[in-house]
Design a protein around this nucleic acid. Structure first.
Lengths: 346, 346
DNA sequence: TTCGTCCTTGTAAACCCTTTCATTATACTG
DNA sequence: CAGTATAATGAAAGGGTTTACAAGGACGAA
């Protein structure tokens, strides 16, 4: 499209040097009022704005933050994206969005691109699993962190050097289980997840630990992270009971899984919460609209994201090595667990 | 974070001029094999990649596309974002995401920023309404289009100059209504929307037109675009019946509205599809998991997005003025409308 | 008047590349 | 082996800014 107007054009038309135009625009140098006005007139006449790629080159600052998330198909990550992007805008930054599917390791090539783009910083979030791909992703992140400001969300304390905001994911399972035991449940299964029982502060760990603490025997776990996964999980769970009595309550990895579980349970003729209780996680937008409305956990992810972005911006001035802040989930009670009074059957 | 390594460093260490390094990297000029190797060794040693901000300045190409969408809170737009971003990545572009809430007009200030960033192109999508804010947004878009490559999705043919990919939204209502009439319904209401009855190719228009074509009397419309809105819509609809018999079928503006409607209907003691049929729109991920699973319309938005991004990229070489391509929605039948046989009650 | 300040402005270097143009090295032809 | 065509390289300009530095002018003090 047509040529862009440059600072030279403005300078010529205003009858001053480019330096003066630059000073007028940036506003951080003294310019005679009369000159300023003359320049501003031309500037507004053409809607002139300095090319950010040129200023980026000079100032070594692109005013752009990278957001690296797994596929946004999971609305939880959409929420994060929304929150991060909005806060960035508020802070006068733009956001470059990258979706890297879990498992696709953060290859050198990708990291190099981030560097080449001279981003001012990067926010990273994603689920981590026990397997090798996660380890290598983590490694990539740590490497990246040495090259540019980076703050991680929910990456747990695996890379101690990483400035991290972490939701207490283990506490999610704990809260869910406590809620259920208060309602009288003792046979509680965790459905969904991505196989991260070895890692600290995961829902899997939280489940295992809390069950042990209460002297309850955990059910074998089944992996899954979306609605179809949730269906498969309950099928799988009931298939590998091996004579053991079925659970009276399910803790889902997230609301998506819960949604799938709901469907499969209905298919199996089990009523929620009448026959089996269910608690989700993430408090996603559809949770109140499930049938029955889902009891779930709110992770306060928007607040986390806001803080993360602010932190990232302030990185430029402050040192955040090993910064960490923790967020506690809160239980949102709706009706998928029923009420104490209904539970005479334990 | 530490200084970046530049092409000078590479050149010095490899004992060649920066021009040669540049040629080796870009690969589009002849360099003696031996020299190339020597340079490449240094390049890989340091993982050197030319700064994209510098190349952006030289080549006048940032390899960055802007994506302008309304709030991603609506998973339909998340889907678009995912699809657009993925296709961009495939085509070797990065995407800068902007969420501009509908109503927040596309101010000059925002447009100027897009220019200042020297984006290679912009994809725009959003709902359009009858009111002034939409008109002004459209105007902003048209203005932008004169300054940089731009393709619009579902913006209808309002700006004839705009290269557009458009889903036949009016056809959505039409398909839904036909499906319902085949099942015997005659009292059909449209719930949700944003007040766009005046505009061509909107669900609202489609509803009105098709009802008229069939000689059926339309119900007054109620606005809303998310799940809470859907609840309000059915409440509102039943409140302003004025003695008229209630509808036996509801066409929802989208699946979110349908979800809300489902909840409110249940609250009112109406069973879906037993007492009232419901069709959604967008075929969002949760549609199969609603109770009952939602009959809805698939807009093939991923395909649309893929094409849009390809188009945008090709804009650089081809002229797309007034390009337009239309996509037909397809009906996805699940169980929220029941089956013909159930309907003895008309 | 003359000197020293301060304010305003312009000149030019720098940022990190790509690319044109000129130059030198190599290969090819007769 | 001379002469020419071609391949490989380097020097330098250019892209659009910011900013350090220098210079000019106004002004008050001595």
């Amino acid at each position: 499209m047509g040529e862009h107007i440059t600072i030279f054009d403005i300078a010529r038309e205003a009858g001053v040097s480019i330096a003066t135009v630059s000073r007028v625009i940036s506003g951080n140098a003294s310019v005679r009022a009369q000159t300023r006005e003359r320049v501003m007139a031309v500037v507004t006449k053409y809607n002139f704005r300095p090319s950010m790629v040129a200023t980026g080159l000079m100032r070594k600052k692109t005013h752009t933050m990278g957001i690296i998330l797994p596929l946004l198909a999971n609305p939880f990550y959409s929420m994060m994206c929304v929150a991060l992007q909005q806060e960035a805008t508020r802070l006068n930054y733009s956001t470059l969005l990258f979706q890297i599917p879990r498992g696709a390791i953060l290859q050198q090539d990708f990291l190099d691109q981030l560097i080449a783009r001279r981003l001012d910083g990067v926010i990273f979030s994603g689920d981590v699993t026990d397997d090798a791909s996660s380890a290598s992703a983590l490694e990539g992140i740590c490497k990246l962190r040495r090259q540019m400001p980076l703050v991680a969300i929910n990456l747990r304390e695996i890379c101690p050097e990483l400035p991290c905001l972490v939701t207490e994911l283990a506490a999610c399972s704990q809260l869910a289980i406590r809620h259920l035991t208060k309602l009288g449940h003792m046979r509680i299964a965790l459905i969904g997840g991505m196989g991260a029982a070895q890692l600290p502060n995961t829902r899997e760990q939280g489940y295992l630990n809390e069950m042990e603490r209460l002297g309850l025997e955990p059910y074998p776990m089944t992996a899954g992270e979306d609605a179809p996964g949730g269906e498969a999980c309950v099928t799988g769970l009931f298939a590998q009971l091996n004579g053991r009595k079925p659970p009276t309550a399910l803790v889902a990895f997230n609301d998506l899984v819960a949604l799938g579980a709901l469907r499969q349970l209905k298919r199996m003729g089990l009523r929620v919460p009448g026959d089996i209780a269910l608690v989700g996680c993430d408090n996603q937008f559809f949770a109140p609209y499930a049938a029955p409305p889902l009891t779930t956990l709110d992770l306060h992810i928007e607040e986390t994201c806001r803080l993360a972005m602010n932190l990232l911006v302030s990185t430029q001035t402050a040192n955040l090595d090993a910064f960490a802040q923790h967020f506690e989930p809160t239980l949102i009670v709706r009706s998928s667990c029923g009420f104490m009074s209904e539970k005479g059957k334990i």
